[in-house]
Design a protein around this nucleic acid. Sequence first.
DNA 1: AATTTAATTCGTAATCATTCTTATTTGAGA
DNA 2: TCTCAAATAAGAATGATTACGAATTAAATT
Lengths: 137, 137
Amino acid sequence: MMNVETALQKLKEKGYKRTKQRERILEIFVKQDQYIAAKEILKEIQNDFPGVSYDTIYRNLYMLTDVELLESTELGGEKHFRLCCETQGHHHHFICTDCGKTKSIEFCPMNSIEENLNGYNVENHKFEIYGKCPRCI
Amino acid sequence: MMNVETALQKLKEKGYKRTKQRERILEIFVKQDQYIAAKEILKEIQNDFPGVSYDTIYRNLYMLTDVELLESTELGGEKHFRLCCETQGHHHHFICTDCGKTKSIEFCPMNSIEENLNGYNVENHKFEIYGKCPRCI
DNA sequence: AATTTAATTCGTAATCATTCTTATTTGAGA
DNA sequence: TCTCAAATAAGAATGATTACGAATTAAATT
């Protein structure tokens, strides 16, 4: 399980500076096992840094996604972010439409359809399942 | 393959009026084998109806999706729409990131993972593959 | 410890997709 | 044709995201 120090270490290696705002952003993600929208991050951080701007939030979210500390997806017209689950390799998610919690799905459909895509150059794919988790049913 | 008259007939059955704008919107979709963004529809229609508003576009796109004449997806932060491919049942798409053209994928991964979701209530899922089609490689 | 430099943040404005509001127009049935 | 609910036009409002100049700060160097 990724922790804040390990993440900051990774950033340092890539040449990014250690800032209080980044620490705080990472803390928030380490605590959560779900996708979070930018505005929720902003709201949370404003407790400690009343003046943070969306610029700071988005710049860091995108940067963290770039270095593969976060992964992102679009939910209900908003970009959402979460810590990469690194305990498993490539995988997908069930996402609860009530509480937002996720469940990992280790099966990846891409393995099953390679033969259907001869002549195509696959760059990316998305497989997500939406519904209610046992606690929210 | 769905044509404009059949589509308008379906709308009539559901109690929706036949309007020139709706005809024109349907025409655009029948001609295209790809996902289209709202603003592209607007641009296209403005040739015939200089005053169309986004309200009209969106209201109709959502209505057409409701009655299952269109299907929609989110691409690059914009909702995109396309005519339902009705020749096949439930299916997914490869989407070319260059030209936007699509290829149907008949395989649905949901069949393979039911046993992983005991206790979960699945409402929906999304499986899309992005890349370059043979013509755009 | 002070200095330097480039990265980062702040504060705010701009942009872009989408939704909303109100007045007006139109399609379809009586 | 007349009537009325449905649909549209025009433009304002909203909400997420991006952009930008000025100020601040981390961290490398002296």
